[in-house]
């Protein structure tokens, strides 16, 4: 596959949840693509739709109440939404690996690491038990578990958090996936372990030429590993840009708010800024821009018009009326 063809192309994805209290538009129109060897960051606070996006790609949205109501998810050119459950199962864990947030709860506590690795490999490859076991050893070695032979028969509770996340990564990588989705893979780990795990991701990506979707709320993680970033707010993209550009020329008030809420290491003391208000209730979003109630630069038109994602610079998109031609915005 040539490197310009996207590995994954998500087009106008809408994932909604139909609950008794009303429809929750958890993901409401997002587009992005991931190329082989590229890392895309998806950033946002809880409830912004990051994880739902990931689960939508894998076809793991609990239904009911969830449903992908519109859009397309093209993986290697084929729309995953057209695939049957059996075909999706062959993609999950093989073509697309997934690492979850909390390694303490993401591994099954009553099965050995060996069983959990071997079953993944044997679900997708025509391996004997012995071959699958050898492959598991190889993977544990790859992700840096010391003494893998001995540890293979251990249970998850016998490992530390960082080691468990390595095992999760080993399982995700078991069948050499071309895409790895990591949903907050370092959030539950302490800082030194975080750095090690991020290192591991970079190393694996180099060795396997995978595309990675890194879902996080931590801009520090983004700056370290991501090539491009999508900032999400209330199920929609707020800003989409190359990582360096976002840190240098971030435009959306929400992005700027996120950046200002990172503590700075400077000699003079200053108060840590916070974004006012609380994350929106997806049951009843305001009519205009969903960020308007919390925005410092809110204008009258923001309360009525939900802005479109507009390209403001080369490969830099922002969904904010501040950067739209105001006349055009009013007329729409």
């Amino acid at each position: 596959m040539d490197t310009d063809t996207p590995l994954l192309d998500v087009v106008n994805l809408h994932t909604h949840f139909f609950t008794k209290a009303g429809t929750v538009k958890a993901v409401d129109g997002i587009d992005f693509s991931v190329k082989p060897g590229e890392t895309l960051g998806i950033v946002g606070e809880s409830g912004s739709g990051k994880s739902i996006t990931a689960m939508s790609i894998l076809g793991l949205i609990p239904s009911p109440p969830g449903k992908i109501v519109d859009g397309g998810i093209y993986f290697k050119g084929e729309n995953l939404l057209d695939k049957k459950e059996k075909q999706l199962r062959q993609i999950r864990g093989k073509e697309i690996g997934m690492v979850f947030q909390d390694p303490m709860t993401s591994l099954n506590p009553v099965f050995t690491v060996e069983k959990q690795m071997v079953e993944t490999i044997r679900a997708h490859e025509n391996f004997s038990k012995k071959q699958a076991r050898d492959r598991s050893l190889e993977l544990l070695n790859l992700v840096g578990i010391p003494d893998p032979k001995k540890r293979l028969t251990s249970y998850p509770h016998e490992f530390s958090g960082g080691m468990r996340q390595r095992i999760m990564i080993a399982i995700a990588l078991a069948c050499n996936p071309s895409l790895l989705i990591a949903d907050e893979p370092t959030t539950a780990l302490d800082v030194t372990i975080q750095a090690q795990i991020l290192d591991l991701f970079r190393r694996m990506q180099r060795e396997l030429d995978m595309g990675i979707i890194m879902i996080t709320h931590d801009l520090g993680v983004v700056s370290e590993v991501c090539d491009r970033v999508m900032v999400m707010y209330a199920g929609k993209p707020a800003e989409f840009s190359e990582t360096k550009n976002l840190f240098d020329h971030g435009k959306h008030p929400y992005t700027l708010g996120l950046m200002n809420s990172i503590p700075k290491i400077t000699p003079e003391k200053h108060k840590l800024e916070a974004i006012d208000g609380v994350p929106p209730d997806l049951h009843g979003l305001p009519k205009g821009c969903s960020f308007a109630p919390r925005c410092k630069h809110v204008m009258e038109s923001c309360l009525n018009i939900d802005p479109e994602l507009k390209e403001v610079d080369n490969n830099h998109h922002v969904r904010c009326l501040l950067y739209e031609d105001s006349k055009e915005a009013v007329s729409t």
Partner: peptide
């Protein structure tokens, strides 16, 4: 509703296997 059941699904395991092994043993 546990995370490891979601993991099992993300690994591409069959539904019966997830229910009768991963879930039931727990």
């Amino acid at each position: 509703g546990q995370d490891y059941i979601r993991t099992a699904a993300a690994k591409g395991l069959k539904k019966q296997l997830i229910i009768f092994q991963h879930a039931l043993k727990n």
